[in-house]
Amino acid sequence: MGRPWEKLLALARGCGCAGQWVAGSAPPVEGPALRRPWARAVRRWLLQPPKPPYRRVCQVGEPALRAVAAPVDPAWLAGPEAQALVARLVHVMRAHGAVGLSAPQLGLPLQVIAVEFPERLLASYPPAVRQARRMAPSPLRVFVNPRVRVLDASLDSFPEGCLSVAGFVASVPRCRAVQIEGLNENGESVVWQASGWLARIIQHEMDHLQGCLFIDKMDSKTFTNVRWMEVND
């Protein structure tokens, strides 16, 4: 990915976040060794491993997903590296039809998130679901160094998934309304008050910046493989 990303990696590593186990959290669980076909191994050796921010979404097990994300220097936002990161974040989010994505999900533990709930995606839900979950559309919004304040602490519990825990959903309780403030991709201060489904999306992405996944807050009895019917058919 070239030299531009080296500054981003250095920024993340400067706070002890990139690719490291977070003290106080559970140590990483070792899985089976990755075995590659000979041709693929040679290709990897020639091209070198990819570096974050990746062009794909990291899956649970990636250390960056369990790290506390580092704040971003506002002056850095004017540079090409920041704009490239935001562009990649938005591109990957849209490519997966997602409504939110965080920099840690691309392997870079920095405090940057993107949220978008387009009309076309809203229309894909049945009217009863839209009403029950209090869904509303939202244009693309990018937040850097975001902070959240709860406006309505009443909890609603609805099914929730995550691109970093692909193939699974579970019910997660979330506050009904929140206010998020921070900087946008241009370094301008922005504030947004959101309720219902949009508030849920914000809380989900903010959790990523703390190394938290929805599986940490879910009702474990509702944890479901979305393909369970297909497997059993």
Score class of each variant (00 low, 15 high):
Trp5Ala: 13
Ala12Arg: 08
Ala12Val: 08
Ala12Cys: 06
Gly19Trp: 03
Ala23Met: 05
Gly24Asp: 06
Val29Ala: 12
Trp38Phe: 13
Ala39Tyr: 07
Ala41Asn: 11
Arg43Tyr: 08
Arg43Pro: 00
Trp45Tyr: 10
Leu47Ile: 08
Cys58Ala: 11
Ala70Glu: 05
Ala70Arg: 11
Leu77Asn: 02
Ala82Pro: 04
Gln83Thr: 02
Ala87Phe: 06
Arg88Gln: 13
Leu89Phe: 14
His91Lys: 12
His96Leu: 12
His96Tyr: 13
Ala98Thr: 03
Gly100Thr: 04
Gly100Arg: 12
Leu101Phe: 10
Ser102Thr: 15
Ala103Pro: 05
Pro104Leu: 14
Leu106Glu: 02
Gly107Met: 07
Gln111Leu: 01
Ile113Tyr: 03
Glu116Trp: 03
Phe117Ser: 04
Glu119Trp: 09
Ala123Thr: 11
Ser124Lys: 13
Pro126Trp: 02
Ala128Gln: 12
Met135Lys: 11
Met135Ile: 05
Pro137Tyr: 03
Ser138Val: 07
Val148Glu: 05
Val148Ile: 12
Val148His: 01
Asp152Gln: 14
Ala153His: 14
Phe158Ser: 07
Cys162Phe: 06
Leu163Ser: 14
Leu163Ala: 11
Val165Glu: 01
Val169Trp: 01
Ala177Lys: 11
Ile180Gly: 05
Asn184Glu: 04
Glu185Leu: 02
Gly187Phe: 01
Val190Cys: 09
Val190Ala: 02
Gln193Glu: 10
Ser195Leu: 02
Arg200Cys: 06
Ile202Met: 12
Met206Arg: 05
His208Tyr: 00
Leu209Pro: 00
Phe214Ser: 01
Asp216Ile: 09
Met218Arg: 14
Asp219Pro: 06
Phe223Trp: 15
Phe223Leu: 15
Thr224Phe: 10
Val226Cys: 14
Trp228Tyr: 12
Met229Leu: 15
Asp233Met: 15
